[in-house]
Design a protein around this nucleic acid. Structure first.
Length: 761
DNA sequence: CATAACGGGCGC
DNA sequence: ATAGGCGCCCGTTATG
């Protein structure tokens, strides 16, 4: 019928058509010819694709080109019966089909090709043979399979071990479904003597997880000798950056293909995203789990060989990063207690005020807002034009600090908006959100501390990559308003100890600058000294406020000084100090002109990284690789600085400039992080010998302890000693520390005052 | 409806 | 000319 009607219509004289109708007809006519698939692929690959999507569509194309995969005929035409072009969405659907088919085949082949030296341990007899064999090993590889990544709630369902001397790789299921196996209690009891034996070294990938998991079941894993994940960070901190030739991540499954030339499928790819390992049939579980420890072992041998060629790094790794793993397990497990009443009360206060402000702001901005929906105050996209009109001034962005703050005294609406944004941030990220992250098992809050979370060696803090429970949070960026939510357990206090001017002391030491060194030897505060000079006000006026906190001026000087040191432009510096560009330039010249040795050191760092493509942290313990620093500069002719033709050249050169700025910063930040880590190990040892003591937290340049209420002055001096003497800047620059006592985080009194008050009572 | 990019903002 | 370093996380927007 369709065709007949069309034919009839075709006989009629063509009616005059409007342009729009004609355009639609053209589109329809065009759609009737199928777009060649090569053209579709070209379009898909020209799109902005995530790494994961790019990998997927590439796999699909390969399978289709090889004739292993074809389009679903149902997808080739649309509802009107016209040919439908091949799309990214369809490619991704095909990827799932491909995955499924490949998964089955891969699993079948894996089982078929199970190596002869892989063994499933399910009987007491074979388990005893394993224990006997373990006693002939100096070092083994260990891995646990679990129900999830919550180390306080999830359980171990199996363990794999690699015994290098015996050339034997085993998997011991302990809680798989529907199979004969040994019990977890029996297996862990049996392995305990080996796990407790420090003389038998253990190699793991991400040891923190397995140590914590075993501890959750009441067992220690002593003698960890190597962690292939953290070691990889030292050997190549850029590994997750594919643009720099990295494997894309620090996962074993990504490292194995790159360094061992062994393909390895991820858990998700083999079993699906939400699969439970305990439901995996044992023949498959064996070949997957035993391969994990075998790969870990091989990666260890590879890493060990390469790290041995840089003995300073090997020594640092073994004496600092390895012992630190145990410190972190304790730190994370100790966790936090939150004052939920405080959070609730404060949260309600914030909501009430936010709602008042929201109503007023919406009412005031609606006349300037285009669109049917009410204006969304959280949308910079909607707010920038509306607010610009409201104040009659074109705003280039909605940056609170740079754009809005300077206008807040002139426009009440901006002052209101700033208060509103402040509250939304505070309640949304901290006050309302943190209380939802309590761990159901321990009833405490546990954040993660990743000792290799940054390219420079600092800790990062947050949630686990695989965490589906959303319990993780960053303890290192809690604002002052949120800190009082955190407190010590009943009967205890918090004691905070920071490294006074840690990075600037580090600079003094690394550069050998006498002006700085002398300031520290004479116990002068360098920032207050600089602030006093700059603002032309007495030292004591710009040093500390009456309550002991830093003055605005000193804080500003601290940030400005460090920023300048790390290459901030005069333009930005002027912005930050709230002065003109000329004044900023003079400040900088005065600052560095008076310290020639420091200036020379900055230049040396640039020259070194330009020549070598990396820089060293203190004692050559760690490298920061900056390959961009070695790139040759591209020429931009004089007078062409704004020419879009040279955009690429500008981009290229700015990568080089960035690497040069990173060079000095990496040396300072990297060296300082080493100081903090070494000191943490000492602090942890100290706490281990004192009942009721624990390391509570760390925020880059400070350690916080949890101590009993009867904490003494002598103990405060021992903390001071730990801070001052665990890691010294070559005995050239002394360390400094301020110690304070807190009942709530962030509400501390100096330790001297604390004990003076105590005496008075 | 999921994922990723983006703008913005908190810490040292 | 460009315009401090190192992180993590939120809400919005773009995308298929």
């Amino acid at each position: 019928m369709e065709g007949l009607r069309l034919n009839l219509n075709a006989l009629k004289p063509a009616a005059p058509k409007s342009d729009a109708v004609e355009a639609t007809a053209k589109r329809k006519a065009k759609a009737k010819t199928a777009e060649p698939i090569e053209e579709s692929w070209r379009k898909i690959f020209a799109m902005k694709l995530s790494d994961a999507d790019r990998k997927r569509v590439t796999e699909v194309k390969a399978a289709m080109d090889a004739g292993k995969l074809a389009r679903d005929p149902a997808d080739c035409v649309n509802k009107a019966g016209n040919p439908k072009a091949f799309s990214k969405a369809e490619a991704l659907r095909l990827w799932k089909t491909l995955q499924e088919a490949q998964r089955e085949e891969t699993l079948r082949q894996m089982v078929e090709n199970t190596p002869n030296n892989y063994e499933l341990i399910t009987t007491e007899e074979r388990f005893q043979a394993l224990i006997d064999a373990l006693n002939n090993e100096e070092i083994i590889a260990v891995d646990t399979e679990t129900t999830g990544v919550d180390v306080y709630t999830d359980v171990i369902v199996g363990l794999s071990l690699t015994l290098p001397n015996a050339d034997w790789h085993v998997y011991i299921p302990v809680e798989h479904v529907d199979c004969e196996q040994l019990s977890r209690a029996y297996v862990l009891e049996g392995l305990a003597p080996v796990f407790n034996d420090e003389s038998i070294g253990k190699v793991l990938h991400n040891a923190i997880f397995d140590i914590a998991m075993l501890r959750r079941h009441g067992f220690d894993l002593k003698g960890v000798a190597w962690d292939t994940m953290t070691a990889m960070h030292l050997l190549n901190e850029n590994e997750s950056d594919r643009a720099l030739g990295g494997a894309g991540s620090f996962k074993l499954k990504d490292l194995a293909p790159k360094y061992l030339k062994t393909p390895a499928d991820t858990f998700d790819a083999l079993f699906g995203r939400n699969a439970q390992f305990k439901e995996v049939p044992l023949d498959i579980a064996l070949v997957y789990a035993a391969k994990d420890t075998e790969l870990t072992w091989k990666l260890y041998e590879f890493q060990r060989y390469h790290m041995a060629k840089i003995p300073t790094i090997l020594d640092y790794y073994q004496t600092v990063e390895i012992p630190l793993l145990y410190v972190i397990v304790d730190l994370e497990a100790n966790g936090y207690i939150l004052d939920l009443d405080f959070a609730k009360e404060y949260g309600e206060k914030l909501h009430k005020r936010a709602e008042e402000l929201r109503k007023e702001l919406v009412a005031e901005l609606t006349p300037f807002h285009e669109g049917d929906e009410p204006i969304n105050l959280n949308s910079t996209h909607q707010m920038r034009p509306a607010l610009s009109k409201a104040i009659g001034k074109d705003l280039s962005n909605m940056d609170a600090k740079k754009t809005l703050k300077p206008l807040k005294d002139d426009y009440e609406i901006i002052a209101k908006l700033l208060e509103y944004k402040n509250i939304v941030k505070l309640s949304g990220t901290y006050i309302d959100t943190l209380p939802t992250k309590q761990n159901p098992t321990t009833e405490r809050w546990h954040s993660r501390f990743n000792p290799m979370g940054t390219v420079t060696g600092r800790f990062s803090s947050g949630k686990d990559e695989e965490d589906k429970t959303q319990q993780g949070f960053n303890v290192q960026n809690q604002p002052p308003e949120a800190r009082p939510m955190f407190g010590p357990p009943p009967g205890k206090l918090l004691v905070g100890a920071d490294f006074k001017a840690q990075e600037i002391r580090c600079v003094a030491y690394l550069s050998g600058e006498p002006v700085l060194i002398n300031a520290f030897l004479e116990e002068r505060d360098p920032y207050a000294t600089m602030a006093s000079n700059f603002y032309k006000r007495p030292h004591e006026e710009v040093y500390k406020n009456a309550d002991g906190s830093d003055t605005k001026e000193r804080k500003k000087m601290k940030v400005a000084w460090l920023a300048t040191l790390y290459g901030m432009s005069d333009y930005s510096l002027a912005d930050m100090l709230g002065v003109g560009k000329k004044e900023a330039t003079e400040f900088k010249e005065e600052l560095f002109g008076s310290m020639p040795k420091l200036s020379a050191w900055l230049k040396e760092n640039e020259e070194f990284v330009r020549k070598n493509g990396y820089v060293w942290a203190d004692l050559n313990a760690r490298k920061r690789r900056l390959p961009d620093a070695k790139l040759p500069r591209k020429n931009i002719p004089y007078g062409k600085w704004n020419d879009p033709k040279y955009d690429d050249a500008r981009k290229h050169n700015s990568r080089i400039n960035r690497a040069l700025r990173q060079a000095t910063n990496a040396r300072v930040q990297g060296s300082s992080s080493i100081q903090t880590k070494v000191t943490m190990i000492k602090a942890h040892e100290y706490c281990a010998n004192k009942p009721g003591w624990a390391l509570w937290s760390t925020v880059h340049d400070e350690l916080i302890f949890e101590v009993p209420e009867d904490f003494t002055w002598e103990e405060a001096q021992e903390i001071r000693d730990i801070m001052l003497n665990s890691y010294r800047w070559g005995d050239v620059v002394p360390n400094g520390t301020d110690i304070e006592v807190m009942r709530k985080w962030g509400e501390g009194v100096p330790v001297e005052e604390w004990f003076k008050n105590k005496e008075a009572v």
